[in-house]
């Protein structure tokens, strides 16, 4: 199958600082790929290279058949959608007038504005000036701007960071819809639940290298430990290794009335991350 995004041995140096040390990944059409990693690991840098804002220092990249030298061309830019914390709107203009500008530039029909505004739940706020919007509302307008021209590939840098749960789930809903329509999505996030929910594949980026790469489930399975977690009614907890020696002990616990819960230690993606990188996210 032809890959929409094909990155190999990508490197980026800022002076002496080696921000990306040879990462590689491939995205199939309609795939959602999550770049996870602590602050400063190189997530934004990766996206900025893919959208033509930064030049790579080494390796090869191809998106939609375009080489990195063509990333500033209109033929490329009209096929991608970008949402990052560097995206901005015109404060003094209304929501509608902001979108009107980009509608004209991308030459899409007038009706698209109303449709995307309804999709993100901002149709009734379309006459409001951007400076009077909340952070979550602004982010949804930016998402409208990013999807209005029906891009084939979307680059989203922390699309839901520091947003309220309602806005976050609205954005998730839209991303899932885009995925269903076949849009290929590359996103970065600090939110492991988000990654588990949305992503087909994730990479754990740490200090410019991929520590892990795979489906969220496969990573959780890989790092699961052969232990059982026991919670007692008095609040005590215990971890017991699952082996033949503990067979009777575990069987007894099953019928012990002091036990509240027995569960296998199946790590969340966040716990996997801590195991892999030895540190907390964020």
């Amino acid at each position: 199958m032809n890959h929409v995004i094909n990155v190999s041995q990508l490197e980026k140096k800022f002076g002496k600082h080696h921000a990306l040390k040879g990462i590689g990944f491939k995205l199939e059409p309609g795939e959602v790929f999550g770049l996870l990693g602590p602050s400063g690991s190189g997530k934004t840098t990766t996206i900025r290279i893919l959208i033509g804002e930064l030049k790579k220092s080494g390796g090869s990249i191809e998106v939609l058949g375009f080489g990195s030298k063509e990333f500033t061309k209109n033929e490329y830019l009209t096929q991608i959608g970008i949402l990052s914390d560097r995206s901005a709107l015109y404060d003094r203009l209304t929501v509608q007038d902001n979108l009107q500008l980009f509608r004209r530039l991308y030459q899409v029909e007038e009706s698209v504005i109303d449709r995307v505004l309804k999709d993100v739940g901002l149709y009734n706020d379309r006459k409001k000036k951007v400076k009077d919007l909340s952070k979550g509302m602004k982010q949804r307008v930016l998402l409208c701007k990013a999807i209005m021209h029906k891009p084939k590939v979307m680059f989203l840098d922390e699309p839901t960071s520091a947003l309220d749960p309602a806005t976050t789930s609205k954005i998730h809903e839209i991303l899932e819809e885009l995925k269903a329509q076949g849009t290929t999505i590359l996103l970065t996030t600090h939110d492991m639940e988000e990654a588990t929910k949305l992503c087909d594949n994730v990479a754990l980026l740490d200090d410019g290298v991929f520590k892990e790469y795979g489906t969220p489930e496969s990573l959780r399975l890989k790092y699961k430990e052969d232990t059982m977690h026991v919670m007692y009614k008095d609040g005590k907890e215990e971890t017991i290794k699952r082996n033949v020696e503990n067979k009777e002990r575990l069987a007894d616990l099953m019928v012990d009335e002091n036990v509240l819960k027995i569960s296998s230690d199946y790590p969340s993606l966040g716990e996997v991350f801590i195991k892999v990188t030895g540190r907390e996210l964020v």
């Binding site: 959208i51 033509g52 804002e53 830019l77 970008i82 995206s87 980009f102 530039l105 030459q107």
Partner: peptide
């Protein structure tokens, strides 16, 4: 906002 414009057509 200039960046956004330059990334448009």
């Amino acid at each position: 906002t200039l960046r956004g414009l330059l990334q448009s057509p």
